[in-house]
Amino acid sequence: MKLFEYARAADAREALERFRPGTMYLGGGTNLVDLMRLGVARPDFLVDVTRLPYDTIDADGDGLRIGAAVRNSDLAAHPAVRERYPMLARAVLSGASGQVRNMATTAGNLLQRTRCPYFQDVSRPCNKRRPASGCPAIPGDHENLAILGHSEQCVATHPSDMAVALAALGAQVHVTGPASDRVVPIPGLHRLPGAEPERDTVLTPGELITAITLPPPPPGRSHYRKVRERASFAFALVSVAAVLDVDEASDTVRDCRIALGGVAHVPWRAERAEAALRGAPATEEEFVRAAEAELAEARPLPRNAYKVPLARNLIVRTLQELIP
């Protein structure tokens, strides 16, 4: 680890003022310190943003405002989240461990980096870590990497569970920056790798996440389901966040939201599947058709083709379980 300077910011202004080239914001550190120890991240300055006044959840009104510094465990335990956004609570609870969730912050969770094994090993090339050095995952091990939206430069996946639920819920990320404040939607915060896999998100240097807001909970029932190699404390192979609103009189889908984790460089909003389902009968066949519509554009690599049937089955089964 390179020697760095550490400072604790009291408010957003101080954090922004302290930001200069080589600075990184420090949340719970559960990803950043991990990456610093691996040599993947080598900041000169750390500005600790956990004491910023963004550690509360505001449930007034129809939606929800989650401070950027709210710890993952507090988010999942908050009564408003449990009652009104259970899918979000489930997604957060399915990630990491009790200890990590106690440390991890909302903003940090969104901005955590890929778990691609090559990315985490500085003795190897990786376009995301060292632009233009190559992507050894494509000819090598990519069993747990992307099937959708990847590029020839990078096939990494975004590892966050929480972000998948937020993508399905249509969350807004509030950002303050050196120039101005702005709001970035999810999906929209994370970007596909394209020719610049080193950029995970659309944020620019120095921009600070202050909060996430959620619109009122969508009508219908929702669920988050995650498939992994062990029963707990493992990243997703594939996960799905789904909301299904069925008109019980006609048994047709009034509306639905589907997002996938573990399949792309971003939390993947399954818009084609959603479009195929709106107004369609709420039946297994339609669910299959919708899932296949979404996955038609999947381009699996030799070793992750299993993710296509896995994602399909997961979408279909989760929707089935949401039929009232």
Binding site: V33, D34, Q99, V100, N102, M103
Partner: peptide, 21 residues
Amino acid sequence: GACTVLLDGRRANACLALAVA
């Protein structure tokens, strides 16, 4: 989890916490 301690009363991984923080 071998490094788990109670940090301000809550369990945390001491390996991922910077001492200065």
